[in-house]
Amino acid sequence: MKRPEISVIVPVFNVEQYLSRCIESILLQSFYDFELLLIDDGSFDNSGKICDEYAKKDDRIRVIHKENGGVSSARNVGLCNAQGNWVCFVDGDDSIEKAYLSILFVENLKESSLVIMNYLDDLNVKDIQLSGKEMVKYFIESKLIRGTGPYCKLFNNRILKYNNIIFNTHVHMGEDGLFLLQYLYCIDNMIVLENRKVYNYIQHPGSLSTKYYTFESEYECFQLWHRYLCQFVEKYGEVFENVEVVAWKSRVDEAFLRSVQALSRHRPRYKFMRVLHLLEAIPKEHTDNFGFYYETNLLRRKLSRFLIKKRWFVMYWLYSKLDFLYNMKYGKI
């Protein structure tokens, strides 16, 4: 049986309201040579049934039902089962325009290891093919590092499998960026495409980007972002000496701030002594560097930065609780 050119992986969890639109948008692609993997991550609404109904209608669809393990777990199951030469991701509550796969499947694809389509409106990115140090330099200078979601990208399945690149299931925010950084470290060429407005991202109250997770999960995300930054600096040292890396280091700062903020967010409710223990266990080098690249005009952010850098953790905890209650009262959280 001939391998499909592209495996489209869709993690599905309780998205019955959006799922049919998502699947239909994929089946209507002008590019036909693909398989569609619908990974039902233990949905308890009608999402699983909807997947099965579509699989009966189109032999390009494969449905895999699994116990709930989160979006990274679902994507990893998709990666394990993907038979295509290339892999792309679409979220179950999003949709794509008819030309989405055709645009990603560029003519000179075999000469590259990654296709990235910019989807950030404020980035002026043009179509370009890059390799080696120029690839890393462009990725940093163009600030594409801000667009690290798995969508609008085409990954080489052989490279993914050879290097065992999967999503980190312990990290629940920023795991898609970590996945991309692992992949970038293993390749030496890529194609960048300007924004074509062909991916329709839907953000709603249940979206992952609206949630905070445990300190442990958020802090592990920060540590991994920091580690990958150091690895890239070691591999492409002279590039990092000559380009502005504020966008990258801002992502590291943002991950650090999220981890600290998690201690005063909804769940779990950390007790005072537990909070102090976790904060005091943070290495001084991390608090010393925090906020150096994360510019902000918000007074509350500046105050948080000041208290953390000073390691005045009792005062920070009291302030963060008051700030959290204030934002809850006025509906800002």
Rank of each mutant, 00 (worst) to 15 (best):
R3W: 08
P4L: 02
E5R: 04
E5K: 12
I9H: 12
V10A: 10
P11A: 11
F13V: 04
V15P: 05
E16C: 05
S20R: 14
C22S: 03
C22W: 02
S25Y: 07
S25A: 13
L28D: 01
Q29F: 13
Q29I: 07
Q29T: 14
S30R: 09
Y32C: 07
D33M: 14
E35Y: 04
L36D: 03
L38Y: 00
I39E: 02
D41Y: 02
S43W: 10
G48D: 13
I50P: 04
C51T: 09
E53D: 15
K57F: 00
D59Q: 08
D59S: 11
R62P: 00
R62S: 08
I64L: 14
H65E: 06
H65A: 11
G69P: 07
G70Q: 10
V71H: 10
S73L: 06
S73T: 02
A74Y: 12
V77W: 10
L79N: 02
C80G: 03
N81P: 03
A82N: 06
Q83F: 02
G84M: 06
G84L: 00
W86L: 15
C88P: 00
F89T: 09
D94C: 15
E97H: 14
Y100R: 14
K110M: 03
V115K: 07
D121G: 04
I128A: 05
L130I: 00
L130W: 00
K133P: 01
V136C: 13
V136D: 14
I140F: 01
I140V: 11
S142T: 12
K143F: 01
K143R: 11
R146A: 10
G147D: 15
G147R: 01
T148A: 09
K153V: 02
F155V: 05
N156L: 14
I159W: 08
I165H: 03
F167K: 08
V171D: 06
L181F: 15
L181M: 14
M190H: 02
M190T: 14
I191Y: 03
I191E: 07
L193V: 08
E194D: 14
N195V: 00
R196D: 10
V198A: 08
Y199M: 10
N200G: 08
I202H: 07
Q203I: 15
Q203A: 11
H204Q: 12
H204E: 13
G206V: 08
F215R: 02
F215L: 00
E220F: 04
C221R: 04
Q223M: 05
Y228D: 00
C230M: 10
C230D: 15
G237P: 06
N242T: 05
N242D: 15
W248V: 12
S250Y: 09
V252M: 05
E254N: 11
E254I: 06
L257H: 03
Q261A: 09
R269T: 01
K271I: 05
K271D: 07
F272N: 13
M273F: 10
H277D: 12
L278T: 07
L279C: 13
L279F: 13
A281L: 08
P283Y: 03
T287V: 09
D288G: 04
G291C: 11
Y293F: 15
Y294S: 05
L298E: 09
L299M: 07
L303T: 06
S304C: 11
R305N: 11
R305F: 12
I308D: 05
K309D: 07
K309I: 00
F313H: 08
S320R: 10
N327T: 03
N327H: 12
Y330K: 07
Y330W: 12
